[in-house]
């Protein structure tokens, strides 16, 4: 169906593992992650970049993988939600805080919320509630009304400040 001659060879390090992949124009980063690499923690929610359930980190910045074209990323460092745990299988402080504080209910929005919190806290270690809200505003949650998410980000900030 697609012109295979237009395929692009991309070189990605995904959660620390190097992949060389031949991708087609029109394939979203989300599709490649979910279908080819079986990283199904990245979720499909709206396909228009509004809900944030497909959020990943590309070269250290959060991005919505449903509207990122795979072929436009010839070389990239990509982190998905599966890559948040330490190599020893321990939860990161942000993950731990979201679990302990019952940040999520169904958890479908977790990629957007966790990556938004990580990006926020890397730049703003002691955020105000307004800064938290602004950071989370790229993602939608239908379960929590955001109260528990806010509480989790505050707890994560405390935990990160206390860990050297």
């Amino acid at each position: 169906m697609d012109d295979l001659a237009q395929s692009v060879l991309v070189q990605w390090r995904v959660n620390g593992v190097l992949h060389e992949l031949d991708v087609l124009p029109g394939q979203s980063l989300m599709d490649v992650l979910r279908d080819a690499l079986r990283l199904t923690g990245t979720h499909m929610g709206c396909m228009t970049g509004h809900c944030g359930a497909c959020t990943v980190m590309i070269d250290g910045r959060i991005a919505k993988s449903c509207i990122a074209q795979a072929a436009t990323l010839p070389r990239a460092e990509i982190r998905t939600i599966e890559g948040l745990m330490g190599p020893d299988g321990r939860l990161s402080p942000v993950q731990q805080a979201f679990w302990d504080e019952a940040g999520f209910q169904c958890g479908y929005c977790a990629p957007g919320m966790l990556f938004s919190a990580i990006e926020l806290l890397s730049e703003t270690p002691d955020p105000t509630d307004a800064e938290i809200d602004s950071a989370l505003a790229g993602s939608l949650c239908r379960c929590t009304g955001y109260q528990s998410l806010r509480r989790a980000v505050r707890a994560a900030a405390r935990a990160l400040r206390e860990t050297p």
């Binding site: 199904t40 939600i81 939860l91 019952a102 999520f104």
Partner: peptide, 20 residues
Amino acid sequence: AVRTLEGRAPIVGAARYSND
């Protein structure tokens, strides 16, 4: 205020939803 038993799976990307 017990944290949920099932709460670990989604934060590590391991929860298996229908589309997975």
